[in-house]
Each structure stands twice: as C-alpha cells, then as structure tokens.
Computed example of a mutant assay.
Amino acid sequence: MRVAIAGAGAVGRSIARELIRAEHDVMLLERQLDHVDSKAIPEATWVHADACELALLEAAKLETYEVVIAATGDDKANLVLSLLAKTEFGIRRVVARVNDPRNEWLFDPSWGVDVAVSTPRILASLVEEAVSVGDLVRLMTFRQGQANLVEITLPGNTPLAGKPVRKLDLPRDAALVTILRGGRVIVPQSDDPLEGGDELLFVASVEVEDALRAAVGV
C-alpha cells in the first residue's frame, strides 16, 4: 500500500518506520527543510513541501497514494490537508492527528477526515480501561461510519462465565472483534467460552452502546 505522511517530526517518523516494517511504500512530506533527513529513514521517499499547497501536492503526485496521514503538529494544517486529499485527489482513506482535544469536533467527514486520532483521548481511554471493570470505554472513533472501538472488561463474577460467544445477544450494529485474555489475543469463534476478566473489544455505533452494555450485563 502507498501511504503519504505529512509531518516528519517524531510522530510522522515513527509512523513511517512502522509502515515500512510492514512493507508499505511511504512518502514523507515536510515543510521545514531542517526536518528533511533522508538518512533517518532511507526507505521512505522524502519531499520538501508544504502539505497545504495544492501545487506542491500535485508535484508530489499525491493522487497515486491510497492513504494520507496528516500528522503535523498543527491542527489547521492537518484539516486543510485532509480536505485537499479527499476532494482534490480522491484519496480513499484519510487519517488525521488531533493535537488539541478542543478541535476534535472539526475532524469529521466534512473536512475529509475518515479517522481522527487524538493522542490525549487515547491516553485518557487507556487509563480508563486500566481501572474500569464492568463498564464501556471508548478507545477510538471511526468518524466516517459514526462507530467506536469500545472495550468492556467482564467482572470476575460475570454471569457470562463459561458461556460460548454465540450466547451474546448483541445489537445489530455491534460486532465483537477480539477477546484479550491474559497475554492472549483471541479471534472469537462462536463456541469460544467467555471468562471473568476477559477484555472484549467491539466495534459499535454510538446509538447501540447502551444495548451493548445490557447484552454483556454491565
């Protein structure tokens, strides 16, 4: 997959390294010349360009990429790039970094954003997840489909203990995607039994979260 990343700071470089390890084709766009260092990640294509300038994005052939990640430290720049990527270049998937949580409401499909990633929110969610048993914790929002990745940790005395996954009466717009049990990551099958302490990860629309809580007895 071809992925263009705007912002070659610590965040952008880290993302680039992970994607290259996964054998993706990566381009890094960086406005500040002193941040352009092809020796740091020689496998990436480096471009000195302001990601908010349409002509420079055209010169970088942004339309040939499948995913754009707006990872600069400036929310305005991330929004402008997201909109340009979606409307001018028809990019299939646009992921944008939210630096200031107060701006998070702007990062939606009207600005071309498919997935908004807010580091403060993720960290807060992880803290919540670490201390919350028997409650629903939102880990990530998928803006395009108005759905969330949510986590529910079953209490030790859950009435679901020993029951197979197929017994979960989930609402229509919710899906169990993973069970975390100790050090294991379990792709749930219909006959897999549930246990107290299981961390259940669901993708669910906002409207059915209350029904999801009820389905797992929390």
Rank of each mutant, 00 (worst) to 15 (best):
L83F: 12
P164I: 13
V203E: 01
P159D: 14
R138L: 02
G196C: 03
V98E: 03
L83D: 08
A174H: 04
G90K: 15
I152F: 00
A161C: 11
P164A: 12
G162V: 10
E128H: 12
T178W: 00
L81S: 13
F142R: 02
E207I: 02
V127S: 04
E129A: 12
P101T: 09
L106F: 11
N157T: 15
A77E: 12
E129C: 08
I152Q: 02
Q189T: 09
D108W: 02
F142D: 04
D169N: 13
D74H: 06
T153G: 03
S190K: 14
L170N: 01
L136Q: 05
W105C: 09
V95R: 05
K167E: 15
V203Q: 02
D114G: 03
V177M: 11
V165W: 05
D198R: 04
P101V: 06
A96Q: 08
L139S: 09
G112D: 06
L139C: 02
V131P: 08
E129P: 15
D192L: 07
L81N: 05
E104R: 14
N78A: 10
L106E: 14
R181A: 05
E199M: 15
R138V: 07
K86L: 06
N78Y: 01
L194Q: 14
A116D: 00
D210L: 07
D114I: 05
Q144Y: 11
S205I: 06
R121V: 14
L149I: 09
L79Y: 14
P171D: 00
V98P: 02
W105G: 10
V95F: 04
R166D: 08
L154H: 08
A161M: 07
A174L: 01
G183Y: 08
V94G: 05
F202W: 06
A174Y: 01
T87W: 04
T153D: 02
V98I: 08
G90Y: 09
S110T: 13
V150R: 00
A175N: 04
D100H: 12
S132T: 15
L79P: 15
V177H: 03
L126R: 02
L201W: 04
E88K: 07
L106D: 06
A204I: 02
V165D: 07
L201T: 01
G112L: 03
V185E: 00
D74M: 03
K163Q: 14
V216C: 08
S125P: 11
